[in-house]
Amino acid sequence: MAEIEIRNLGIDYRKPNSDELFAAVDNVNLSVGEGEFVSIVGSSGCGKSTLLLSVAGLVKITRGSITIGGKTVTGPGPDRAVVFQDASLLPWRTVLGNVRFGLEMQRWTGGDLTKQAMSMIKLVGLARFADYYPHQLSGGMRQRVNIARALAVDPEVLLMDEPFGALDAQTREIMGGELLRIWESDKKTALFVTHDIDEAIFLSDKIVVMGRNPGHVKEVITVDLPRPRTPEILDSERFTEFRRRLRAHLAADMAGMHFMEEAA
């Protein structure tokens, strides 16, 4: 029902200080099945966010199409919710106020807003902090709020743009485990942008490796590690094998980037 189909997607941006256009992503084809957890990895600036935000309906599609559950994406919709980095929490609202925010914007009609928000805050383990302001929370806690805000509107697709990008390595690992726990409770279709290879392998059913200039899909790797996953698999041989493959891909891309810079 909530599978994502991306067909020949191309997105053009305007170059800074000029009227010229350039393709940030081009010719992207990708299918994400219902209930699948798919990560997007690639070097910085290769168009990961652009791809994710186009699925969210937040950037204009120049070429091709995106459908979700058969419906064409033309803008944001209640079937999708985005988890941004922590700068997107309203600093003047408490945790509860922030989680309610998405519900308010959607004119949520599924019952009491506060009750719905509180149950999500409990789910992410912040029940004690409901009336704290974002600046009183740690980075990890703020990201839990961000996740709760997105889950509260009960979307069919969860879109995440480097949600743990600003966290330290240790917190990041804990948050990865938490995200999996939450996700496994109702297995929403999930699209997750990261530049952390281990995080991508640990979380995903499939990993999309993107290349640059313009952003395109280089390869889709299926991660057939068993679920539920525990931190132990990080040391397993198969995990290490995935890691090696992904590294090779990204290293090749980096080399390409270096070459491009010299040519320019």
Binding site: L58, G77, A81, V82, F84, A87, S88, E104, M105, R107
Partner: peptide
């Protein structure tokens, strides 16, 4: 960032 987050939840200009 805040504006984009609001729009992602379907906020209207009024919101």
């Amino acid at each position: 960032d805040l504006k984009r987050a609001a729009i992602s939840f379907g906020a209207r200009p009024y919101d």
